[in-house]
Computed example of a mutant assay.
Amino acid sequence: MHVERQIKLVTEQHNIPKPSPMPEFPMKEWSVKIYVLDQANNEHPATCFTKVIYNLHPSFEEKTHQTFTEPPFTCANEGWGEFEMSIDLFTTEKGGKTTVYHDLNFQSPSYEVIQSVTFKNPSQSLLAILRETGPIPNEDDSKVAAKARKANDLKKKKAVCDFEKMADALGKLGEEDLLQVIQMIHDYKNEDTYIKNDVDAGEFTVDLYTMPDLLAKMIWDFLVEIKVVS
């Protein structure tokens, strides 16, 4: 599964009163922040990333690679020159690293750049975060398919017997016949069969629709045999 999201890089810059090594280029204070956009282009904290590394111009020397772990992953520095930086975006996924490139320039006090980022085979925890900013591909189709399968299973079960008649008949059984039905349920239920046995209250409950077809057919045939349903 691949999930795509838009990220926004917000750059702000202004002159500062510090001497520049290049007199014709004033010193600047600049910053870059990262946000995730939803389908309406609203900004959200980029919590889908756990770490961001800005790879700056080599002239920054020991500060060339700067790491941030909290949204909006603000990278703030001083300098006089424009350059293209690469930005590594990390998630907790295996191989979860994406690199984008950003042009740092001083043409305006602030500017925004939108780029696409693809998340490959995100985990359930990352999917939960990504849902906050947009749909997950094929997820709606999967839900529809699951609903259709459930409806089809229910239809098949109804074809085995009439559960409404069964429920009504079970409520009218005498103690001996009822105990025989309960024993059938215990003997032939499966892991999906929901039962509740309240010994203190003398109550036994079963969700008829969760019984396997074989068990439902056995109970139905028994009810037919003792002539409480037809």
Score class of each variant (00 low, 15 high):
residue 1 M to P: 14
residue 2 H to T: 15
residue 4 E to T: 12
residue 6 Q to N: 14
residue 7 I to S: 07
residue 7 I to M: 08
residue 10 V to H: 14
residue 13 Q to E: 04
residue 14 H to N: 12
residue 17 P to W: 05
residue 18 K to R: 15
residue 22 M to C: 12
residue 26 P to L: 06
residue 30 W to Q: 06
residue 31 S to F: 03
residue 31 S to V: 12
residue 33 K to P: 03
residue 36 V to Q: 11
residue 37 L to S: 02
residue 38 D to G: 06
residue 39 Q to G: 07
residue 43 E to Q: 15
residue 44 H to F: 11
residue 45 P to V: 08
residue 46 A to C: 08
residue 47 T to R: 15
residue 48 C to K: 04
residue 52 V to A: 01
residue 52 V to K: 02
residue 53 I to W: 00
residue 55 N to V: 02
residue 56 L to D: 07
residue 56 L to Y: 03
residue 57 H to Y: 10
residue 58 P to G: 12
residue 59 S to N: 13
residue 62 E to Y: 12
residue 63 K to S: 02
residue 63 K to W: 03
residue 67 T to W: 06
residue 68 F to M: 12
residue 70 E to Q: 06
residue 70 E to R: 10
residue 74 T to Y: 00
residue 75 C to M: 09
residue 79 G to N: 13
residue 80 W to H: 14
residue 81 G to A: 14
residue 82 E to G: 12
residue 86 S to K: 08
residue 89 L to H: 06
residue 89 L to I: 08
residue 91 T to R: 04
residue 92 T to S: 10
residue 92 T to P: 05
residue 93 E to Q: 05
residue 95 G to K: 11
residue 97 K to I: 05
residue 97 K to Y: 02
residue 103 D to L: 01
residue 103 D to I: 00
residue 107 Q to L: 05
residue 107 Q to D: 14
residue 108 S to T: 11
residue 108 S to M: 03
residue 111 Y to D: 02
residue 112 E to C: 01
residue 113 V to N: 13
residue 114 I to G: 11
residue 116 S to H: 04
residue 117 V to Y: 10
residue 117 V to L: 08
residue 118 T to D: 02
residue 119 F to Q: 05
residue 121 N to G: 00
residue 122 P to N: 03
residue 123 S to F: 07
residue 125 S to E: 14
residue 128 A to W: 07
residue 129 I to S: 04
residue 133 T to M: 00
residue 133 T to S: 01
residue 137 P to W: 04
residue 142 S to Q: 15
residue 144 V to F: 03
residue 146 A to M: 06
residue 149 R to G: 05
residue 149 R to D: 11
residue 150 K to T: 15
residue 150 K to S: 09
residue 151 A to D: 15
residue 151 A to C: 10
residue 153 D to P: 01
residue 155 K to M: 00
residue 157 K to A: 00
residue 157 K to L: 00
residue 158 K to A: 02
residue 159 A to R: 01
residue 168 D to I: 10
residue 169 A to F: 03
residue 170 L to M: 11
residue 171 G to K: 06
residue 173 L to Y: 07
residue 176 E to V: 14
residue 176 E to S: 14
residue 177 D to N: 15
residue 177 D to V: 15
residue 178 L to D: 11
residue 178 L to P: 08
residue 178 L to H: 13
residue 178 L to V: 10
residue 178 L to S: 15
residue 180 Q to K: 15
residue 181 V to E: 09
residue 182 I to A: 08
residue 183 Q to V: 01
residue 184 M to D: 07
residue 190 N to F: 00
residue 191 E to Y: 10
residue 194 Y to K: 09
residue 197 N to R: 03
residue 198 D to V: 10
residue 202 G to Q: 12
residue 205 T to A: 11
residue 205 T to C: 11
residue 206 V to Q: 04
residue 206 V to K: 05
residue 207 D to Y: 12
residue 207 D to W: 12
residue 209 Y to A: 09
residue 212 P to F: 08
residue 212 P to A: 14
residue 213 D to P: 06
residue 213 D to L: 07
residue 216 A to N: 01
residue 220 W to E: 03
residue 220 W to G: 03
residue 222 F to Y: 13
residue 223 L to Y: 08
residue 225 E to V: 09
residue 225 E to A: 07
residue 226 I to R: 14
residue 229 V to Q: 09
residue 230 S to D: 14
